[in-house]
């Protein structure tokens, strides 16, 4: 059992403990730009009574929800094609290519999109050749979404692909055999069979989008700021770490609720009448 110890110790010391400390920190006070240990609810009250906090909260929630829906929908035909139409060789290569972005700098990719999306960027340059535009894409919600897609799409396609590839082909053929058309089979049979994987993919997409600060900041222009940006601003420009901790805990709790509901939904047996 000594093999269990290294992981246990490291994660307790440097993962669980810091998270616990974050909770404690949210009750501390800041006096003369110094943090003082204590047990005061002032940070919670201050943050929760500010309009801008709730604006940021619901805006972040909305962005992450839109990102989840958009990414899942855009990823599905791709994952479906790779799972059901592609040869095993093509599928393996696709998988390999989809893992690559995971290890390339997300920052550099976001910067690249700035070059594409800017008012004088490549897309608007192309549009102007045909007499359109310029369209404002950078520093809009569209820009944020492009960033979220960059972050989430490869992962969501991979996760959807894995669960679709596990779908029993017999059941698909059984549906055709019973008179179910191709498109209808996707919704009546394939999606229910792959439900757990699809929900897990969507959940990861939500978690990534909800916590990301690069896209809403560099591509979305931080107008209005999201919760992550709020944490950075609060931490970096001053000593209001306890308030940042309040935001962080709120985010974690939200994510836990979302993840828990998603898992419950994914594994729920349909109730029978």
């Amino acid at each position: 059992m000594s093999f269990a110890l290294p992981g246990l110790l490291w994660q307790l010391l440097f993962f669980v403990f810091p998270m616990m400390f974050l909770i404690a920190l949210s009750f501390w006070l800041v006096k003369n730009y110094r943090m003082v240990p204590g047990f005061e609810s002032v940070n919670w009250v201050k943050m929760y009574t500010r309009g801008y906090f709730w604006d940021a909260y619901f805006y972040t929630l909305m962005l992450a929800a839109i990102s989840t829906v958009v990414t899942s929908i855009l990823a599905f035909p791709c994952a479906y094609a790779l799972a059901f139409k592609a040869s095993p060789t093509v599928r393996r290569w696709a998988m390999f290519l989809l893992i690559i972005p995971f290890f390339t700098s997300y920052l550099v990719r976001a910067y690249s999109w700035q070059i594409f999306l800017g008012n004088e960027g490549i897309f608007n340059g192309l549009f102007s050749v045909f007499g359109f535009g310029p369209y404002k894409m950078l520093h809009t919600m569209f820009g944020t979404m492009v960033g979220y897609l960059t972050l989430c799409l490869p992962l969501v396609v991979v996760l959807q692909l894995l669960s679709l590839a596990n779908v029993d082909k017999n059941l698909v053929e059984a549906a055709w055999n019973l008179g179910c058309g191709r498109v209808r089979t996707i919704f009546q049979v394939i999606v229910p069979l792959a439900k757990v994987g699809l929900v897990v993919a969507a959940t990861f997409c939500f978690i990534l989008s909800f916590g990301d600060f690069v896209s809403p900041y560099y591509l979305g222009g931080s107008k209005p700021p999201t919760l992550s940006i709020l944490i950075i601003d609060t931490t970096k420009s001053g000593q209001q770490w306890p308030r940042a901790a309040v935001v962080a805990i709120t985010m974690i709790v939200t994510l836990m609720i979302v993840a828990f509901s998603a898992v419950t939904y994914a594994y729920a047996r349909r109730t029978r009448q």
Binding site: L12, F14, F17, G211, W241, A248, M251
Partner: peptide, 27 residues
């Protein structure tokens, strides 16, 4: 619980992880 602990960290937003580490380590 043990496996949860071992696999959970990547699901925590990096900003929050950064804040927690900074808060603890600087302390």
């Amino acid at each position: 619980f043990y496996l949860g602990l071992a696999l959970l960290p990547p699901t925590v937003p990096l900003v929050i992880m950064g804040l927690a580490m900074l808060a603890l380590l600087s302390r």
